[in-house]
Design a protein around this nucleic acid. Structure first.
Lengths: 340, 340
DNA sequence: CCAGAAAATGATATCGCAATCATATTTTAT
DNA sequence: ATAAAATATGATTGCGATATCATTTTCTGG
């Protein structure tokens, strides 16, 4: 920021390459960006000069001149959660081969911070944005609408997306798990998750779950929550808490596999038989779920696919192709295992 | 890329705000960037105008004009590995509050791809870069030297870093674990890890481990490796493989906790007593290590700290402060638990 | 009340590149 | 061989902001 300007910037510029290759700057630009429109002879000279000088294109000047940058901002609630990482990897895969560059913003489940990130990212003239979730502040919506850039909301399926949308219905997923537990004969089921006020999708799973319990005339319990990030430790602690405070509970639906895995490991250590004393289910379908003893019942979602779809959608939209579907409701898989 | 220019770019510009506020563009720039040098009256008018128009600063124009962007590239081998995520979180924490923006490059342990990323990132005129590892192609070194930007190499401690460096000695860590296993009475110890050719740090742990075995006159075995990314599944499979093919082995040092955890889960499922039949150790000190039964012996490294230090170092260097230490050898913790 | 200093504001040039339009060169068709 | 079309190259301008320097306004002290 407080850097002193150093006469001509510090790098090798197009002009330097042009000088060395004995052509005009614009020819260099063309030779490097659209080699096919430049004669092989010149192209070669230019390439050699660029190589010799170790020229790298100044992306900011490029973006400024062509009024459009190759930056796609991705705004997620958390990086430490494997779930988002997988989505990001899917996005990366597609975006990278289409020549785009990702920037990440971590909101820590805070909608104000989401606004800040988006506002900042708009300053990069992004050709489009990828967001996690469909819940935003009013002023975030206004800002996005004002700037009119393509936006893909991911992770959860919404009936009224801002623009494009790919995800699954967490309400349905929650209901499906309730259904499963009821079918297996459990009658006193409780939901446990962290930071439910902030984690809207976990809350939606609870809502679906709770509604199903109500529909089936079963006892409903308020969700057990902790105001810390999810982790196996907390999951174990929550299981303990439930066994102690509400011993009638015969099954727990954890908001995610981290918590559920922690519960299973804790039970194992303490010799609590699962699912006989209490059943445990999770959500996400992390690989570790299959390896636990007992193996963990969970709901798998195609996260990498979600990322890929989001990126593909955006890239298509950017390149002007009209895409048939602006919304995709990806399905989920309830994987019934030994823990229930 | 193929976007048509749309006359004046599509966003609100400084000029628009200036027009609305009835001042010159440069005053707007000042009012927003260094409010203290503008009179309160004008500042307020400008701020109101900016708010009304939903102005967001064009970062690329800003960076171009001041010849310096706020982008710090971070190049890591993998995003799916929790280890790098933690380093990144540490970096983020410091970088963000200093007003910098991170961009990530994922090399998948490929040095050529590292070169590509770095070359690309240099086009963003970054004030500095953060890399994982100290092993690079010759042309990568040349490029970095040519551009002379501050660089922090992280994760592993090197005797001859490019510029700044923070990390730990993986050779020593490997030796420490060998030491521990020997002290506990194991005599037929084997090392198991994935993609050792690419994962230089895992290889270094093996080297340290192997050297220690040699020093103590114990039988040395070639490392067991798989050419797939590490995962609990693979760890379980490797344990099986060892028990079957080399039944004399009484302890396994896995290259990381993912593999080791998988081994423990597998053993549990198959009723193989750990550590009685075979001991298992890991590396990284992931939280789950403590929760397994038996709990996993591992080596913890201060990853978040590494990230923080790297970022702080870079920020200091950028702001021109001379820092005492250009290198930091962070220590590691061997946490002896029940699995050995 | 005025000279001189300090503070606030503005005009202009520039960052590095690509879009646009103009010009030179080659190719093709007749 | 020559006009017309196609291709290759170059000159100029502008993207949106900030640095620099110039100017105006406000403050200070005698």
């Amino acid at each position: 920021m407080g850097e002193k300007r150093q006469g001509p910037g510090q790098g090798v510029t197009l002009k330097d390459v042009a000088l060395r290759a004995g052509v005009s700057p614009i020819t260099v630009s063309r030779a490097l960006n659209r080699p096919e429109v430049v004669s092989p002879k010149l192209r070669e000279k230019v390439e050699a000069a660029a190589r010799d000088l170790k020229y790298v294109q100044n992306r900011m000047a490029g973006a400024l001149a062509s009024s459009g940058s190759p930056v796609i901002p991705v705004v997620v609630p958390s990086l430490s959660n494997a779930v988002f990482i997988e989505v990001i990897e899917g996005v990366q895969e597609i975006a990278q081969e289409a020549g785009f560059q990702l920037m990440f913003g971590n909101t820590d489940y805070d909608l104000d911070r989401e606004y800040e990130w988006i506002s900042m990212f708009l300053g990069w003239s992004p050709p489009g944005l990828i967001l996690a979730g469909t819940r935003h502040l009013q002023r975030t919506r206004a800002l996005l609408k004002h700037y009119g850039r393509p936006v893909v909301e991911t992770m959860e399926y919404s009936s009224r997306p801002l623009d494009m949308n790919v995800g699954l219905s967490h309400v349905k997923a929650g209901a499906a798990m309730a259904d499963h537990l009821i079918a297996r004969g459990y009658r006193n089921i409780c939901f446990a998750g962290c930071r439910l006020r902030a984690d809207h999708r976990a809350k939606q799973r609870f809502d679906g779950f709770d509604k199903m319990l109500a529909q089936q005339g079963l006892a409903r319990r308020p969700p057990l929550t902790r105001e810390v990030p999810s982790s196996p430790e907390v999951g174990g602690e929550m299981l303990d808490h439930i066994l102690r405070e509400d011993p009638g509970v015969d099954a727990v639906f954890f908001a995610n596999d981290d918590l559920a895995a922690g519960a299973i490991l804790r039970a194992q250590r303490e010799g609590i038989p699962i699912p006989d004393r209490i059943a445990v289910a999770g959500f996400n379908g992390l690989p570790i779920a299959a390896l636990l003893t007992p193996s963990l019942t969970t709901i798998a979602s195609p996260r990498r696919e979600i990322g890929r779809f989001a990126a593909r959608q955006l890239v298509q939209h950017i390149s002007g192709q009209q895409c048939r579907t602006k919304r995709l409701d990806v399905s989920f898989d309830l994987i019934a295992r030994d823990s229930t």
